[in-house]
Design a protein around this nucleic acid. Sequence first.
DNA 1: TCTCTGACTGCGT
DNA 2: AACGCAGCCAGAG
Length: 120
Amino acid sequence: MNTPKEPTDSQRNFFQDVHEVVRLIPPGRVSTYGAIAHYLGARHGARMVGYALIAAVPARGLEQVPAQRVVNRNGLLTGRHHFATPTAMQEALEAEGVRIADDQVQDFKNVFWDPAQELI
DNA sequence: TCTCTGACTGCGT
DNA sequence: AACGCAGCCAGAG
């Protein structure tokens, strides 16, 4: 059987794959949806990466999937509204040493962590 | 069953 | 340089 309870192994695999990459992001560093999508093959589209994070909702365990370390290509905390609190994402990053200003990561290029380059 | 939106990005005009 | 559009896949109405 194919476990009808699950949508499809392929989809679920993608979700878990994203979670794994996000989990590999070191503290004090941030990554982007596009970087992760590209690392996975860029065939899913950055959108799905963000969508996968929704399934990874930190509400279940922030340490399990540090989605706060994932921002858009502009270094903007686009998904902060999805956290338990609108400032949870910012505070979580600041707690790790990442400076945030106006919902935007400072020195983004400096704290940017590319899985395809660092996690070769 | 069809349509729309959504934690995005890159390209074209 | 700035603005707009199309592409990616999946879940919800």
